[in-house]
Design a protein around this nucleic acid. Structure first.
Length: 920
RNA sequence: GCUCGGGUGGUGGAAUAGGUAGACACGCAGGACUUAAAAUCCUGUGGGCAGAAAUGUCCGUACGGGUUCGAUUCCCGUCCCGAGCACCA
């Protein structure tokens, strides 16, 4: 009987859907297991063969866990708000909702063909008002809370107002912006506007002036993780710095917890490292310098991690955007400084980065006093100091900081070495090692001793204190775009006020065009009556990460109208046990989501402080492009092996008309009109194409559609082949060439159950040799799945099937467990054979937790062997024994007999005094 | 520049508490079946040398050293590739 995969797959997919096989429900009698994929943005191009890689892996794991008796939650949905749909809408006038809906439908069709065990009843879409109601709700919660560093928790704004009434903000240790100290009586005398301004500085979701990444081409601001190398991640447009009043989330308040709680997560070290870098904790000191601009005297704060180098601070530097620049520019220097600032301002972020090696700067005309040497040192303004980090001002120690060094050499400022024996004639000495000199009371100490000693002295003198700084900035939350969640905020007399929960969701209004208005306002300004009770509503929308920050919680209870997630559902499903997705979200989504979760945790809405316990980053699947070689100036194409004897141009050719790098000549001539009459110069009667690994994209004609593979080979082959391609976490090119091997294997597997046309499975008891094949496989597949080493388990199946052919085995006691074993990988064929073996219900209902254990070596196999084909044990051997005597001892050992199971010894490797390996 | 990964046949990749390097698959070559093709099955396949052959032998896991009876695996140095961060004081 033929392995008719298309019929088998169609039937079982229909049956899974109609029987709701993968519907997950709370079952307190079973342990839960939550397997989540990063949900896709449904783009217009549809899925290519690289997209499902992670979904296949998570599906294998989900199905495996179900077999082991877990109650598995495995949902899927769509991250549906986003820029491409909006850009497309601007070009075509089609509503983004329409194109998004269309794309989702297409995605769903493609996904369904691969046979995933998703519970589609839990599907979420971020653009659905019933969904984004809870995104808006969370935002309102953040608006109505502040962060208290003394309790390490978010607390209600109402509590903050009480504190202000009783004691002002003097004793407060809160995450906040720039707020002057005030007493209770001062607070009581403040106007409503002033109070709301102050409260705004404390809110976790707040409106504030900040330097933002402005992308003129997109007409919107972008978050730091949406900008790479000065260009927007989406679209690659230039980005510049601009001061704007924007909604922000006080993520920085959670920096320490985000850092600390990561320790216990099962994430890869490199991913954790990326987050650590992004959070960028550094311990040091804040120090105050006296600065003088002519007669006026000020106190300027700086941050440093190297307080020990204070004696070598020979000048100071301000960021061009620093508010100190104006105060500290002397009249004589005014013209020069203004010219410098204007030039700096004009540069885009990209230009600034490209020129980062160029040294630029200008003297402000002011001087500071080094508090330890009492020297008068100049204050400069330079681009290499960033306004957003620390205080936007530094003390420069050219001898021990390479950036200060380059600057000092360029502008001829003094360099004072502070470490004995260091040579600063060519470059600075940045290492934190050596013995201090030229440093007053620090002389003779090692750097490691000097750092705390210097800070102690600074604190004793009252000119500074210990300080921890984080690189992590607050997230800019406003986007001047249409296709996103509207802010549930209106401006009552200009005061930002949230809508109450009963008014949510605040739905996205209709607009005539999806572009900004002529006056530069966001697209929502085009909406008629965009107001609440006559007050204007906020016109920007939320960024892409808003909707993806809590979606894993919504899956737990997707249709709840009263809450984001019920207590009951949350207490059962708790957190994501396994999260699979691309590494590109390492510093965006994965930070925001953790922050969002921690905030809801503080408020008691969720019960776990971390959302994603274990995380796997699947590698990207790249394209494998094919080339033909056109002889320049002709319509002749020469085969790969002959191309060097001609002057040729390399041209991409559609990989779908190439097989094993052999060009389908007929298809090529029909591919494009210009090739219709081309002349092909062959070698050995064939046209061989060149190839290269590139990004999978339409323009390179190397996109392989999973539908094509499903048509030709079936979903089970696609699933197994994607796993067989290589380690899950590694990036690798897609190469359709190898797929035949996997397809052949499935056909061979199928034929194990048939004799000629008949299904024939024997009820006879299995032989030891047959059992050995099965147990070897169970052992291997189980450990491989647990380690996400799916490529080697596919190999293990192939070996087992080959072995069974050799043994001519068709016994139920061997084949039935094999069907169970293979079902996570190739569920359709497994279901079909399972039903042919006489089982009525789906193999997914089989759920034998014991099935895997039953067949592990320890529990059932009588041979104490290691399955690598090697037996290892220690024998008490005398080193004087001859080779023959050792062999005799090995042969007569009882373990050897058991291991051989009737086979014979091929080779014995004896390592004196250690191990004996027997190969059979 | 800094921080992580990683360099194994023609190709994708196996194998590390140090113990037969190249599992499994692709490709290639040869063969069986067939009028033929497809499908299926069998055999060979890292390189050199010797041999008619079975086989033997030497060299081989980026390069150079080291530890060890034994190194793809551990240590030191060099080169190359990939990813991330990039004036964070």
């Amino acid at each position: 009987m033929e392995y008719n995969f298309s019929e088998i797959e169609k039937n079982w997919q229909a049956r899974w859907a109609s029987e709701k096989t993968f519907k997950a429900e709370i079952d307190k009698g079973k342990p839960k297991f939550y397997v989540l994929d990063m949900f896709p943005y449904p783009s217009g191009a549809g899925l290519h063969v690289g997209h499902p890689l992670g979904y296949i892996a998570s599906d294998i794991y989900s199905r495996y866990k179900r077999l082991k008796g877990f109650n598995v939650l495995h949902p899927m949905g769509y991250d549906a708000f986003g820029l491409p749909a909006e850009q497309y809408a601007i070009q075509t006038g089609q509503h983004p909702a329409t194109t998004t809906e269309k794309n989702i439908k297409r995605y769903r069709e493609q996904l369904d063909r691969i046979g995933f065990s998703f519970d589609w009843e839990r599907e979420v879409r971020t653009c659905d008002p019933d969904y984004y109601k809870w995104t808006q709700w969370a935002f309102v919660q953040m608006f109505e809370h502040w962060y208290d560093f003394s309790t390490h928790k978010a607390r209600a704004i109402a509590e903050l107002e009480k504190i202000f009434e009783i004691s002002g903000n003097i004793a407060l240790n809160a995450a906040c912006g720039d707020v002057p100290l005030f007493s209770a009586s001062e607070w009581s005398k403040m106007e409503r506007e002033r109070r709301s301004e102050i409260l705004m500085e404390y809110r976790i979701a707040y409106l504030g002036e900040t330097s933002v990444n402005w992308c003129a081409a997109l007409g919107t601001v972008l978050a730091n993780d949406e900008v790479k190398e000065g260009l927007s991640v989406r679209g690659g447009h230039p980005v510049e710095q601009k001061k704007m009043r924007q909604w922000q989330l006080r993520v920085s308040a959670y920096a320490e917890r985000l850092l600390k709680d990561m320790e216990e997560l099962e994430w890869t070290e490199s991913l954790k490292e990326m987050q650590r870098n992004w959070i960028g904790k550094s311990q040091g000191a804040e120090m105050t310098f006296k600065v003088m601009n002519g007669e006026s005297e000020y106190s300027l704060d700086i941050f440093t991690t190297r307080a020990d180098t204070i004696y070598g601070a020979t000048f100071m530097v301000l960021a061009p955007e620093s508010e100190w620049v104006e105060r500290l520019t002397s009249n004589e220097q005014k013209v020069e400084v203004e010219a410098y600032l204007a030039a700096a301002k004009k540069k885009t972020e990209r230009e600034r980065m490209a020129e980062s090696k160029k040294v630029t700067g200008v003297f402000s005309g002011s001087f500071a006093i080094n508090p330890f040497t009492q020297e008068k040192i100049p204050v400069w303004i330079a681009e290499y100091v960033l306004a957003g980090y620390g205080t936007g001002a530094i003390m420069a120690v050219p001898a021990h900081d390479s950036r200060d060094y380059t600057f000092a050499r360029h502008f001829n400022l003094p360099v004072i070495p502070l470490i004995e024996g260091c040579d600063v004639s060519e470059e600075s000495f940045d290492a934190k090692e050596g013995v201090m000199c030229n440093s007053g009371f620090l002389n003779g100490m090692s750097v490691k001793e000097a750092i705390p000693a210097a800070i102690d002295e600074v604190e004793r003198r009252g000119i500074g204190r210990r300080k921890i700084n984080y690189r992590l900035r607050d997230a800019i939350f406003s986007r001047q775009r249409y296709w996103g969640e509207p802010f549930p905020i209106y401006y009552n007399d200009g005061i930002a006020t949230p809508l109450s929960i009963e008014k949510l969701p605040l739905e996205l209004p209709e607009v005539d065009k999806f572009l900004p208005t002529e006056s530069g306002e966001p697209p929502l300004a085009r909406a008629e009556n965009w107001s609440f009770n006559g007050w204007p509503l906020e016109k920007s929308t939320m960024p892409g990460f808003a909707g993806s920050s809590a979606y894993y919680l919504r899956y737990m209870d997707p249709s709840n109208r009263e809450a984001l997630v019920s207590k009951d559902a949350n207490n059962y499903w708790r957190d994501v046990d396994l999260y699979i997705g691309g590494t590109e979200h390492a510093t965006g989504h994965l930070i925001y989501s953790r922050f969002w979760n921690k905030f809801l945790y503080d408020l008691g809405y969720v019960c776990e402080k971390e959302p994603f316990r274990k995380l796997i980053n699947q590698g990207m699947i790249q394209g494998r492009s094919n080339f033909v070689y056109r002889v320049k100036g002709t319509n002749k194409f020469v085969s790969y092996g002959l191309k060097d004897s001609y002057d040729t141009t390399e041209i991409h050719v559609d990989v779908n008309i190439v097989n094993n790098d052999r060009l389908d000549l007929e298809a090529f001539r029909n591919w494009m009109p210009e090739y219709e009459n081309s002349e092909l110069i062959l070698e050995d009667g064939e046209y061989i194409c060149g190839w290269a690994v590139e990004k999978m994209s339409k323009s390179m004609f190397n996109v392989v559609n999973p539908d094509t593979i499903c048509d030709k080979y079936g979903a089970d082959t696609l699933r197994m082949y994607e796993m067989f391609l290589g380690p899950l976490e590694q990036s690798k090119p897609w190469d359709t060439n190898g797929i035949d091997g996997v397809h052949r294997f499935l056909k061979r597997f199928w034929r194990l159950f048939f004799e000629r046309e008949n299904f024939r499975v024997s009820e006879e008891a299995a032989s030891p040799a047959e059992l050995k094949v099965l147990h070897k496989l169970i052992n291997k597949v189980q450990t491989d799945i647990e380690n996400f080493s799916f490529n080697t388990s596919v190999s293990a199946f192939m070996i087992a099937v080959n072995d069974l052919y050799e043994l001519n085995c068709n016994k139920r006691s061997i084949l039935e467990p094999m069907v169970v074993l293979i079902s996570p990988f190739a569920p359709h064929i497994a279901e079909e054979l399972w039903s042919k073996l006489g089982h009525n219900s789906s193999i997914s209902f089989a759920m034998f937790p014991e099935y895997f254990e039953k067949f592990t070596i320890e529990n059932s196999f009588e041979y104490p062997v290691s399955f690598n084909g090697k037996l290892r044990f220690k024998l008490e051997l005398d080193r004087s024994l001859s080779v023959q005597e050792i062999e005799a001892a090995v042969r007569s050992n009882e373990n050897t007999e058991k291991f051989l199971a009737g086979g014979s010894i091929k080779k014995i490797i004896v390592v004196p005094g250690k191990i004996i390996n027997i190969v059979c």
